[in-house]
Simulated scan of single mutants.
Amino acid sequence: MSQDIRGEIRTFIGAKFPGLSFTDEQDIFALGFVNSLFAMELVMFIEKAFGTRIPNEELKLDNFRTVERMADLVQRRVAAAAH
């Protein structure tokens, strides 16, 4: 499941920034192409694509720095919703 989540997130980012090359572990904010507006787009995309809601306490920049961290966040939220 984690690979599927990562793939969807990579596809979303890639569609917004064609030609950009990055790994799942690279900090997309440190690369300099992500701004706060795109960060909100990421939140909305994740909520819609994965059918989850991200609570305020999870809206930390660290949860969105890398594809890997976003996938971990999605898995936590999906698991929490299942309980």
Rank of each mutant, 00 (worst) to 15 (best):
R53Y: 11
R65G: 01
A71C: 06
G14E: 12
E47P: 00
T52F: 06
L37H: 06
L59Y: 05
F45V: 03
P18Y: 01
D24H: 05
R69K: 15
M44S: 10
P55T: 02
L73W: 03
H83L: 12
G7S: 10
A49T: 08
E41S: 14
L61H: 07
N56M: 13
I9T: 04
R6V: 04
R6I: 12
E58N: 15
F38S: 03
D72F: 08
F38I: 10
K16C: 09
A80L: 07
K60R: 11
F22S: 09
G32V: 08
N56W: 05
R65H: 09
A15E: 13
R10M: 10
F45A: 02
M40W: 01
G14L: 08
L61Y: 08
F50G: 00
E41L: 09
F50L: 04
L61W: 06
I28N: 02
A81L: 12
E68D: 15
N56F: 12
V34D: 00
Q26G: 09
I54H: 03
E68G: 07
V78P: 07
N63P: 05
D27W: 13
E58F: 15
S2Q: 14
K48A: 13
P18F: 01
A80Y: 02
M44A: 14
G14P: 05
S36R: 02
S21R: 15
F22M: 07
M44Y: 07
L31Q: 14
S36Q: 05
E25V: 04
A30K: 15
L20D: 05
I13E: 00
M44D: 11
F38Q: 02
K48L: 10
D27Y: 14
T23F: 10
R76P: 01
I46S: 00
L42N: 04
E57S: 10
